[in-house]
């Protein structure tokens, strides 16, 4: 996607300050905050886009400074992209990303999880959707055991130590966690 970048220098009037959970302050251009629905709504509600309104720092208690830096990098890159629409989600399996995005999201799984949570909190649909698609592609082609390792899923089926075959469970075992609860009261002690 090609985007022309007009050369406008940000003035103090069109900035807001956000504070990460570890107390670090970031100066954000209002143009960048348009990509985050959470920040855009906040700015609109407090009328921070007006020059005569005093702008208090916005605390972002769920986002660390490292995550915030990463997010600002994303917002800067997509500064002049067209606004994200819900119709932009394509579920086709053949999908490619631009090289910058691939490099940007070439991070370990745990960092990806934190970034996804931050993108979800700030409601940045383009970033959010891209992370989801990349995580889906990281699972593709893996066996159940490999998926358990990547996604830290604990199996709830007991396997035989020697054969690896799941042990046949008793039919009264808790399929949905309900059968362990007895509906009839226990007999009173004699």
């Amino acid at each position: 996607m090609s985007c022309e970048e007009p050369t406008t220098s940000p003035t103090p009037e069109n900035n807001i300050t956000v504070v990460s959970s570890d107390g670090k302050e970031f100066l954000l251009d209002l143009k960048l905050t348009e990509q985050s629905e959470t920040l855009a709504r906040l700015i609109s509600n407090f009328e921070y886009d007006r020059t005569d309104v005093k702008k208090d720092p916005v605390p972002l208690g769920n986002i660390t400074s490292a995550q915030m830096q990463k997010i600002i990098e994303w917002l800067q890159h997509h500064r002049y992209y067209p606004k994200w629409e819900q119709n932009d989600i394509h579920y086709s399996t053949s999908f490619t990303f631009e090289t910058w995005v691939e490099e940007y999201l070439n991070i370990p799984n745990n960092e990806m999880f934190e970034l996804l949570n931050a993108a979800n909190y700030l409601n940045i649909p383009r970033l959010f959707s891209t992370i989801c698609r990349i995580m889906a592609s990281r699972i593709t082609g893996k066996s159940a055991e490999q998926i358990r390792t990547v996604l830290n899923i604990k199996t709830d089926v007991k396997n035989d130590v020697y054969t690896g075959i799941p042990i046949q469970e008793d039919s009264s075992s808790s399929e949905d966690g309900m059968s362990e609860i007895s509906l009839s009261p226990s007999p009173p002690p004699i």
Partner: peptide, 12 residues
């Protein structure tokens, strides 16, 4: 490093 899928919020 893991990606704890079952701890991901509902929408993502």
């Amino acid at each position: 490093p893991h990606f704890p899928l079952l701890h991901v919020p509902y929408l993502p």
